[in-house]
Design a binder for these strands. Sequence first.
DNA 1: ATACAGGCTCGCC
DNA 2: GGCGAGCCTGTA
Length: 296
Amino acid sequence: MNLVEVTAQDFDLSLTLDSGQVFHWEKQGAGFVGLIGEAAIYLEQSGDKLLVTPDTVALVPRYFALDHPLREICAAFPNDPAMNAARLYCDGLRIIRQPRWECLASFITSSMKQVAHIRKMSRALRERFGKPVMLYESHLYAFPSAARLARATEKELRECALGYRAKNLLATAQRVASGRADLEAWCVLGDEELRARLCELPGVGAKVANCVMLFAYERLRAFPIDVWIARVLREKYFPRARKFTAQRLRVFCDEYFGAQGGYAQQYLFHHARKTAARPSRRPLKDRDFASTVDVR
DNA sequence: ATACAGGCTCGCC
DNA sequence: GGCGAGCCTGTA
């Protein structure tokens, strides 16, 4: 295979692709195959170079956000034990720039699901509705457009193992396809306004909205709070607090992690996921967020 | 086996 | 404006 070099300092490809941001890349040989939009790519890492299939090499620096000043971002993290451990563990992890619809749709399917299953739903949707793209002799399938999914039936989406998420994905696809929700135009909105618009979409609450803001709208202070992160925050930052509200938690994250919130969250999240022997003996329940100790 | 996942929504208080 | 339950499916 004829490959082209791209310089990629402070970057760890496999760490980044395995960090729960994106669900369609697959290991192949020494690297990965996947798509950036509808462009099929193979790439592998060799030190501070990426070796990439020539046709699509131009898309790589932007997609993998090689322009983010990663050293500066990490240096600006809060200096505390949990953050320092995560920073060390996740060296080279970048927040990638995903196509907006693909990211939104993927995270609508993600609710109450582990990565392995989100990947399966993504694959089922792509193989059933996506545009086939050749990469050498193998077929890849691009993530289906909103217009295509808007024409699907709920039954067809359920056949992709979406369960109750099918209805939400279909309804959101219809809003996007019809232009009632214009994902591209929303780029110009401020963070609060953008979050509010996203949360109006079926199947999108605060957590999914923050993921989409972070991974598809470059809102690097967006801080998605899921059960993993909630557990980390509770254990590392509030070991004595018996209770705190989701609202207070959000305020704390916004103030404490500030402009680096999205990166900080991703580092804490990935570190927790990969170092936990078991997800948890005692699963975190909603009541763990509940009520009234001052969080400051 | 059967509980439970990287959540959202609705009905109830 | 907080709380609990239900929602589909695959996996441990």
